[in-house]
């Protein structure tokens, strides 16, 4: 008999899931269901949409109305769902490659529109499913099967990208910082507008092995030691932040939501 939360929100007949031993994706997926449970949402009013990749397998295990779509296009499908049924809570699960490479254009325009969709990007810094090719979030000089001598591209800072593009709620956490991740997802869902939460995962099989990062446990310990909450970072010296990365709530400033603004135009034209 699985735990109460797993029994309630997962398709338990599909478990155990397909992800590798120690993959952080399972931790993040459970965190999403905990956030939904804490909010007490009506599950029939939730639709979870994903693209392609390791991350995008998640909705297959989640007992909601779910949609597994094409590579990079989860946000395009989700936009259609939200426009047709604005009362739905639409949650997108996507990966670093799916969201910022193949679907990069959909991502920035969904941010810009401020459509009420909560997007959780499972960032494992690599394309895991297809064999470890480097992605837009593979850190500079790190290795992948397509960059065997090191990557010369600069990595995307996903929250900075989302803020610049106009998302109204933006946060970042890690698989290790699970409680923070749950609260960011909760607040992201509560925000009526486009919310983006970057969830830094661990990929011991490809990213970890290619870059000698050790086991899943060692990769989670690295997250524990190198993440600094943005609230604490403001009181720290630049030297002490060297080599660290920020987690926490980066932006929370609601603005008019897209489907509501659209409805206003319909209502106005009906009166004229």
């Amino acid at each position: 008999m699985p735990s109460e939360i797993v029994n309630k929100y997962f398709r338990t007949n599909k478990l155990p899931q397909i992800w590798c031993p120690g993959c952080g994706h399972g931790i993040i997926t459970r965190a999403i269901t905990v956030a939904i449970d804490k909010l007490g949402l009506d599950r029939d009013k939730i639709c979870i949409v994903s693209g392609i990749g390791c991350s995008s397998r998640a909705p297959g295990y989640m007992d909601f109305d779910t949609l597994h779509t094409t590579h990079g296009r989860a946000l395009a499908f989700a936009t259609g769902i939200k426009m047709a049924n604005p009362e739905l809570k639409v949650i997108v699960i996507t990966g670093d490659g799916d969201a910022t490479a193949i679907g990069g254009n959909h991502l920035i325009h969904a941010c810009r529109r401020n459509i009420d969709i909560t997007t959780i990007i499972y960032n494992n810094n690599i394309y895991g499913m297809t064999g470890g090719q480097y992605s837009p979030t593979t850190p500079k000089f790190d290795k992948g099967t397509t960059v065997p001598y090191g990557n010369v591209d600069k990595a995307f800072d996903i929250p900075a990208l989302a803020i610049a593009a106009g998302a109204t709620y933006v946060g970042r956490s890690t698989a290790y910082h699970t409680q923070l991740l749950i609260s960011l997802i909760e607040n992201g869902i509560k925000n009526e507008g486009f919310s983006l939460i970057e969830a830094i995962s661990v990929c011991p099989t490809y990213y970890g092995r290619k870059n000698k990062k050790g086991s899943a446990v060692e990769m989670l310990e690295w997250q524990k030691e190198h993440a600094v909450n943005i609230a604490a970072a403001s009181k720290m010296t630049p030297e002490s932040l060297d080599g660290k990365f920020l987690i926490g709530e980066f932006k929370n400033s609601p603005e008019p939501e897209y489907t509501r603004e659209y409805q206003k135009i319909i209502d106005r034209l009906k009166k004229e």
């Binding site: 699985p2 735990s3 797993v6 997962f10 478990l15 155990p16 899931q17 992800w19 120690g22 993959c23 952080g24 994706h25 399972g26 931790i27 459970r30 698989a175 290790y176 699970t178 409680q179 899943a216 989670l220």
Partner: peptide, 12 residues
């Protein structure tokens, strides 16, 4: 343990 088990194989 439950919070970070990626496989939902342990719980309180």
């Amino acid at each position: 343990c439950e919070l970070r088990c990626p496989d939902y194989a342990i719980y309180v």
